[in-house]
Simulated scan of single mutants.
Amino acid sequence: MKKVLITGSLGQIGSELTERLRKDLGVKNVISTDIRTIEGSPVVENGQFEELDVTNYDQFLDIAKRYEVDTVIHLAALLSATAEKRPAFAWNLNMTGLMNALEVAREIGPETKFFAPSSIAAYGPDAEPDNTPQDTVMHPTTMYGVTKVSGELLENYYHTKYGVDTRSVRFPGLISYKVEPGGGTTDYAVDIYYEALKNKSYTSFIEKGTYMDMMYMDDAIEGIVKLMNADASRLEHRNSFNITAMSFEPEQIAASIRRRIPDFKLSYDVDPARQGIANSWPNSIDDSDARKEWDFSPSFDLDKMTDEMLERLSAKFKAEGIETKVSFGKVNS
């Protein structure tokens, strides 16, 4: 990667990946795009930024050619719970946007590097629920999952047919303090930290005992960078690699929070729609191929992530003048 175009750069992944790649490659070598502009956003203010509707192929190609990029990182997509509410819109955005991104990559050069994430949503209820293997049946029952399986196949096609250097991972739920969640089923695992600091309580829309894979955003960003810099000759799977860092259910994340906030309370008001989505996903996935083929290795477990989230969010709230009900003391072990 020398000059990178990122779509969806104001989203949860895009905002942090933009920051990382600007440090690695230089500000002028990262062109961040999104369908909207947010005034004051570091993504917009601190480097190259263009407004882009990824369903507009001509606009997409013009930006890629104008900046002479050699890598396309396509993150613009509608997430799981939101996609279920607007399935036709989700298909158009997720698939037309991806097709345009791949066509742009093919047009700007035969060996262009390309990344678009998949998700654990690509699996369905008939996949093995525990330690789900890299290669198995994939029959998703959500529109988001359908677009992710279709995307994996489409990326493989562009690699074998046109030589585009496509690479991808199946992300689990991603947890970050920098950007608030945007419509995913795993978002409870982000919301819970916000509410723990503000109210010392949280009402989960996911049922007790529901396990899902999760990952701290720092590990997700490092995973993207590491995969994109990996030796292509080692990659057997490409689209897409399972990656994960931990699998937990709501009671376990609550217990981790109580190490720092002993009187934190967890209750439940289950959302049937999002619970149904969660039930169709694996409890845990096997990421041994990513570890073998490009040395994937996460750094954060649940307790380390909890400490980081609470401390970072507390500092963020203080800087924004938001009052919290928590004073941090010694960790309760």
Rank of each mutant, 00 (worst) to 15 (best):
A83F: 06
E155H: 04
L153V: 15
K178A: 12
L52W: 08
L10V: 11
T18F: 10
A83H: 01
D53F: 01
V146S: 08
S299W: 00
V164P: 01
W91T: 03
G321M: 09
P42K: 00
G124N: 02
K330A: 15
M138R: 14
A83T: 00
P129L: 01
G47V: 07
G11R: 09
D34L: 01
D165M: 13
V4N: 03
E236R: 08
E311W: 06
L197P: 02
I192F: 03
V331P: 00
Y123D: 00
T7W: 05
K2I: 06
D289C: 10
I38A: 02
E51I: 14
K28V: 08
R36D: 08
T96N: 14
A220T: 11
A77T: 09
D301A: 00
L93N: 03
N283Y: 11
P282Y: 08
L61Q: 06
D303Q: 10
D263I: 13
L313D: 02
I192L: 06
E107F: 01
I243W: 00
V146T: 07
A64C: 09
P282D: 01
E50R: 13
E249Y: 10
M99A: 13
E180F: 14
T210P: 07
K330H: 08
M143R: 10
L61A: 03
V164M: 05
I277R: 03
D289W: 12
S201K: 14
T203D: 04
L75W: 02
F264S: 11
A76S: 12
Y268N: 03
A254Q: 11
S9Y: 13
P250W: 00
G124M: 07
P250E: 06
A116I: 13
E107N: 14
T185D: 08
A116S: 15
K292D: 10
Q252C: 04
Y216S: 08
L310I: 10
L75Y: 03
T55S: 01
T306G: 11
D126C: 10
V44E: 04
M246S: 04
N199P: 02
I322A: 05
A116D: 09
K226T: 02
R258T: 15
A88T: 12
R66Y: 03
N92K: 15
A83C: 04
P172F: 05
E308F: 09
